[in-house]
Design a protein around this nucleic acid. Sequence first.
DNA 1: CCGTTAACTAAACAATGTTCAGAATAACGA
DNA 2: TCGTTATTCTGAACATTGTTTAGTTAACGG
Lengths: 208, 208
Amino acid sequence: MLATMKATERRSRQREELRAEILRAARGIVLGEGYRALTMRRIAEAIDYSAAAIYQYFENRDAIAASLMDQGFEELAASFEACAAIADPAARLEAVGRAYVAFGLDHPETYRLMFMEDPEMTASLLERETGRQGPGERAYGALIGPVAELAAAGRLQPGGEAQPIADALWSALHGMVALKLTCPQFPATPTDTLLDTMLRGFVRGFIR
Amino acid sequence: MLATMKATERRSRQREELRAEILRAARGIVLGEGYRALTMRRIAEAIDYSAAAIYQYFENRDAIAASLMDQGFEELAASFEACAAIADPAARLEAVGRAYVAFGLDHPETYRLMFMEDPEMTASLLERETGRQGPGERAYGALIGPVAELAAAGRLQPGGEAQPIADALWSALHGMVALKLTCPQFPATPTDTLLDTMLRGFVRGFIR
DNA sequence: CCGTTAACTAAACAATGTTCAGAATAACGA
DNA sequence: TCGTTATTCTGAACATTGTTTAGTTAACGG
């Protein structure tokens, strides 16, 4: 009985461990060779199992991708945490914006997976997220929070509402990252200049 | 000899015709079932030929996709032509921005193909474009033109340069479209509101 | 009508994701 | 320790992909 306990526990720990190893391998492949190289057989080779074995740990390839997306959102939210200490909402918002773009450019393949690949996958993940306080919502909160604070302090331009403004900023930042990832040589403006320009315009356009 | 002329001419006309039919079919498939459904066998079925026959008209599947992208750029540039008549550069710029977003939302699969799919494909197309006045460059000119006019008229905010501002606008518009295509239910702000907000912020942020 | 050339097809190849019948392994009860 | 049972894993298979190739069919020219 006691031995049974120990055994099943060890078994489930080993399960967890192998599952994690699959994800580790998958992550390595995506980072090193891109999402297109993420094949079941390639993962299997990396962990020294057969491809079929993976299906005991993940329903299918999309489930693996979804897990990688989850990790991505965690990292993104984590990179926002560092900005939380900034008191002034305008300064915090700018810091979050810069962190967002930095994340996208530093983890192009992950970002691509999260926001540019399969609509259905992104949708189902965000839906699943809607349960309270997942990393996706936390990340989104880091954007809308400062804008809401500015609105509450009467520091938005007249007629401006928090949500549309926050969404507009997110869209614009996403556009910058997405465009750089899809066609690096275009637009011609260097990334830093582009980001500075965008943020300056945003501040002048929405904050007073 | 004269008969030979006629025959070869007809043959080359038939070639052209079949090539066009392949593109027509491909376009129909992409529009109706999305880019993922664009398979050689599916095209072959639509035009009542074998899949292998297509390779006499296109080097590979990517070449077909590239042709569809070309058509997309043509359409985009054409939809910008309508705005060329607007005299005031600020008003013209706003019209072009609205036309851009409308194009993306009206032709989601084409837009996806053009700006969100394969980096290499988009890159090679834009590179090929760099030869003078392709539709891609014309479309880009419709964006940077008005901004340059505003700069020349001293109507930009102090310190603002035309190119970064135009690129920032393009990035922002692209972000809006791309985000809507990838996760339609997010951001929550309705598209119209989002676009209005963005354009108002842009005007206030960069134009004086 | 025959020979040449172009166009087209059927079949095959190498990948892909995924499934399934069975082999191998581990855990359990005696 | 041994036999039973549950779990885990594998090899082979299937259906799809893009693409190539050998060979057949059709068109053309004289």
